[in-house]
Computed example of a mutant assay.
Amino acid sequence: MSTTSTRPAAHARRVVDVHDARVFKDTPSHLAKVVIEPNAWAEHDPFLIMAEDRFGGGAFDLHPHRGIETITYVIDGRLDHQDNRGNTGSLGPRDVQLMTAGRGIIHNEVPPEGTMVHTLQLWLNLPATQKLTEPRYQDLLHAAMPRISRNGAVVTVYSGSFDGTMANTLNHTPFTLLEMDAPAESHIDVPLPGSYNGFVHVIDGEGEVGVDGTSAKPGQTLWLERTEAGIDTSVRISTQTHLRVLVAAGEPLRETVVARGPFVMNTAEQIKEAYADLRAGCFKA
């Protein structure tokens, strides 16, 4: 006697939008591209913006944040970090830092003197109830994160889970962040909660994403169709050449977004309060 599972197969997601990174600054010391455009808050929820930067010393200065989390992935080079609370850190290739700005922090990120660093930085929205939470840092070092091999591909789990393997990352907004590094002519199915909104960003190589096999090239961000809570979904990633991508997906907050400069809150009054608090020195520990 044999039995078969009655559990339905995961819904295979398709790609609904492909965005090519847009250059908005190009100088010898700083090449900056917009990867996720601002102001499409509902469409990209819970993500806000993402930028790709290649820069040296002096490209940035000390600057504040409130109401968000920044997710910084180092593509190449080294990135040193410091803030007004006395925290310091250093990231190498494929390391990730998840910084919770919360109620306010002033920081700077710079490469070692005389070098350039290549990064992606994604802004993740904080729920209204956590906008003024205590700031914190989580350095998610590539060598220390859970890693799974499937069909020749290596998946590193920075946040959330993959195929039952979970990272111990602390999240205010539930989200998954994976790096997939796969050889040519292979494929892998990445499971995602049905309620999560997400995308695949190509760092290096070429392939196809989604059930329709949408072409994917370096620098492109491929947004996945929105699906419903309570169903299992997956996205197929197939390779033509060696391929490295980031897969990011998170639970939409469905809250009003009011953004100005480095602050993202829920009302215009809260933005005014953020600037007043900054002037009053309230961002210090």
Rank of each mutant, 00 (worst) to 15 (best):
P111E: 03
P111H: 06
P112Q: 07
P112R: 13
E113G: 04
M116V: 05
H118F: 12
T119E: 05
W123P: 00
W123H: 08
W123K: 11
N125L: 09
L126W: 04
L126M: 06
P127N: 08
P127E: 11
A128N: 11
Q130L: 12
Q130I: 07
L132K: 06
R136M: 13
R136A: 08
R136C: 04
R136L: 04
R136W: 05
Y137Q: 13
D139K: 15
L140Y: 15
L141F: 15
L141Y: 15
A143T: 12
A143W: 04
A143P: 00
A144V: 09
R150M: 11
N151S: 14
N151L: 07
G152L: 14
A153W: 08
A153M: 12
A153D: 10
A153P: 14
A153G: 15
A153L: 10
V155P: 09
T156V: 11
V157R: 12
V157E: 02
Y158W: 03
Y158T: 08
S159I: 03
F162M: 10
D163T: 06
T165R: 14
T165E: 14
A167S: 13
A167T: 02
T169G: 01
T169F: 07
L170F: 09
T173I: 04
T173C: 01
P174C: 11
F175C: 07
L177E: 08
L178I: 10
L178R: 02
E179A: 06
D181Q: 15
A182E: 13
P183T: 11
A184C: 07
A184S: 09
E185C: 10
E185I: 08
E185N: 15
S186W: 09
S186T: 15
S186I: 03
H187W: 13
H187C: 10
H187P: 07
I188W: 01
I188H: 03
I188M: 09
L192I: 09
P193A: 06
P193Y: 02
S195H: 03
S195F: 01
Y196T: 00
N197H: 14
F199L: 03
V200N: 01
V200S: 08
V200H: 01
H201P: 00
V202M: 04
I203G: 07
D204A: 04
G205M: 03
E206S: 05
G207K: 02
G207N: 00
E208H: 10
E208W: 09
